[in-house]
Design a protein around this nucleic acid. Structure first.
Length: 208
DNA sequence: CCAACGATGGTCT
DNA sequence: GACCATCGTTGGC
């Protein structure tokens, strides 16, 4: 299991570092293959962007906890809280490669097709049986955990999916060539300078 | 293949 | 009352 320290890094870095790691819930294992970063400053697409509310409260807590919310009245999305306490940031887990417990996932998802089990944020929570009950839980304490993996994947970047605001920001990350990634979208190699330039601008905004 | 659309209910203004 | 970090189905090619 990963230490608390693992989660204490910048949100965009955590979003990349989570790729290739395992999300583990009981007998269910999935390799994280796609993530998105949501930032407190300068990111209108972030739930916490307008400040603390009852729903987004976990995002303002310590890194390494879960933030699970209901979307479109039907699906749940799993996030891993990042950033510092008081800073509302998180990483959305967008897709997993199913690794263990595939029969259970198939039952939960009502499909046999492996590519359709966890290839989307609403799909993976359904496959794992995650709901609001799993909101604001420590990944150190469980029952949800992140396990390490030595894999160093090749990472690509693109804009995020499904947003009406903040859609131009390059904050989606995924493993090159992985067939369980949720959606095609024009992507580029990971460019630290591009991300850093944005982060710099966000801090400027913060200090206004 | 893929664009359009409806289901569905919590959250915030 | 409007919005939504989605998904499965439908109907076109």
């Amino acid at each position: 299991m990963l230490s608390a320290r693992f989660f204490q890094r910048s949100t965009t870095e955590l979003a990349r570092e989570l790729l290739g790691k395992y999300l583990v819930y009981g007998r269910l294992w999935g390799k994280i293959v796609e993530t998105e970063a949501y930032l407190y400053h300068g990111d209108p697409g972030c739930h916490a962007h307008r400040g603390l509310t009852p729903r987004n409260a976990p995002m303002f807590g310590p890194a390494g906890r879960t933030y699970v919310y209901l979307i479109y009245g039907m699906y749940y999305c799993l996030n891993i809280v990042s950033g510092k306490v008081g800073e509302g940031e998180a990483v959305l887990i967008r897709a997993l490669e199913p690794v263990k417990g595939l029969e259970i996932m198939q039952k939960n998802r009502r499909t046999l097709k492996i590519e359709n089990l966890c290839s989307g944020p609403g799909k993976l929570t359904q496959a794992f049986g995650l709901t609001k009950k799993h909101n604001n839980l420590s990944l150190q304490k469980g029952p949800l955990h992140i396990y390490d993996n030595q894999e160093k994947p090749v990472i690509l970047t693109s804009t995020r999916i499904g947003l009406n605001v903040g859609k131009e920001l390059p904050l989606r990350f995924f493993i090159q060539g992985n067939r369980f990634v949720s959606n095609y979208r024009p992507a580029t190699e990971y460019r630290p300078r591009q991300i850093n330039a944005f982060a710099k601008q966000a801090i400027k905004l913060k200090n206004h």
